[in-house]
Amino acid sequence: QLRFETNGEEQAKKVLEEAKKHNLEAHVTIENGKWVVHVK
């Protein structure tokens, strides 16, 4: 499982879109005010 700390909602959405293009499972959590994308 990969973990990407992003700078906010915009970047998190871009990472999610990329993951979906590659048929990867991804979800976002907010940790300590940071948007974190988890990709399987």
Rank of each mutant, 00 (worst) to 15 (best):
L16F: 10
A26G: 06
E5W: 02
V39A: 02
A19D: 02
K14I: 13
L24F: 12
I30C: 14
Q11D: 14
I30S: 06
W35M: 06
V28K: 02
K40M: 13
K34H: 11
V15P: 00
V15G: 02
W35E: 04
E17R: 12
T6G: 03
V37Q: 00
V28Q: 02
T6V: 15
V36R: 00
E31D: 06
L16S: 04
E9V: 08
H27T: 14
Q11V: 08
W35T: 06
H27P: 00
W35L: 07
Q11K: 05
K14L: 12
K21G: 05
E9R: 05
E5I: 13
I30Y: 13
E5Y: 07
T6Q: 03
K34M: 11
E10L: 08
A26K: 00
K14Q: 12
Q11A: 14
K21A: 12
E17N: 10
K13R: 14
V39F: 05
A12H: 01
H22R: 14
K13V: 09
E5V: 14
K20A: 14
N23V: 02
G8T: 15
E5R: 00
A26N: 02
N32L: 03
G33V: 00
N32S: 03
E31R: 03
E17L: 12
E10F: 05
N23L: 08
V39E: 02
F4K: 05
L24A: 06
F4G: 04
E9M: 10
K14W: 07
Q1T: 14
V36F: 02
Q11C: 15
K34D: 05
Q11T: 09
E18N: 12
E17G: 08
A12N: 00
G33D: 10
E9I: 09
T6P: 02
H38K: 06
T29F: 07
V36I: 14
T29L: 06
E31M: 06
E25G: 05
K13Q: 14
V39P: 00
R3I: 12
H27E: 10
N32M: 03
L16C: 15
K14R: 14
E9N: 03
V36Y: 05
T29A: 07
E31L: 05
H38Y: 15
K13F: 11
I30N: 10
W35F: 11
A19T: 04
K13E: 07
F4M: 06
A19P: 00
N23H: 13
K14G: 06
K34F: 08
E17D: 13
T6F: 15
K13Y: 12
I30L: 10
A12T: 05
E25V: 13
H27K: 10
V15C: 15
K13S: 10
A12D: 01
I30A: 04
E25M: 09
N7P: 08
V36T: 02
L2R: 12
H27S: 12
K21T: 06
E10H: 08
L24S: 05
E10M: 08
E18Q: 13
V39G: 01
E17P: 00
G8M: 11
E5N: 02
E9G: 04
V39N: 00
V15N: 02
T29Q: 08
H22Q: 11
E25P: 08
K40S: 14
E25R: 07
E5D: 05
W35V: 08
K21L: 11
E9Q: 09
H27F: 15
I30W: 06
H22M: 11
K40F: 10
K20D: 05
K34Q: 12
K14N: 08
N7D: 15
V36L: 03
F4R: 03
L2E: 08
E25S: 12
L2W: 09
K14V: 11
K40G: 13
G8E: 12
T6M: 10
V37N: 01
A12R: 01
K20R: 14
A19W: 07
H27I: 11
K14H: 11
K14Y: 05
Q11E: 15
L16R: 02
Q11N: 07
E25L: 11
L24Y: 11
W35G: 03
K21N: 10
N23K: 09
N23D: 10
E5A: 04
K13M: 14
R3L: 09
K34T: 06
L24N: 04
F4E: 04
N7W: 13
H22L: 12
N32Y: 02
H27C: 14
L24G: 03
E10G: 07
W35Y: 09
H38N: 11
L2A: 08
V37I: 08
V37D: 05
E18M: 15
I30G: 03
I30V: 13
A19G: 01
N32H: 03
A26I: 05
H38E: 09
A19S: 04
L16V: 13
N32I: 00
N7I: 12
T29Y: 06
E31G: 02
V28D: 00
A26L: 03
V28S: 03
K14S: 10
V37F: 00
E5C: 14
G8N: 15
A12K: 02
E17K: 11
V39I: 14
N7Q: 13
T6W: 01
T6K: 01
K14E: 10
A12W: 04
E17M: 13
V15T: 03
Q11L: 08
V36K: 00
K20H: 13
W35A: 04
F4V: 14
G33A: 01
R3V: 13
Q1C: 15
V37G: 02
R3F: 07
E31K: 03
N23P: 01
V28I: 14
N23C: 15
I30E: 07
H27Q: 09
E17H: 09
V15L: 15
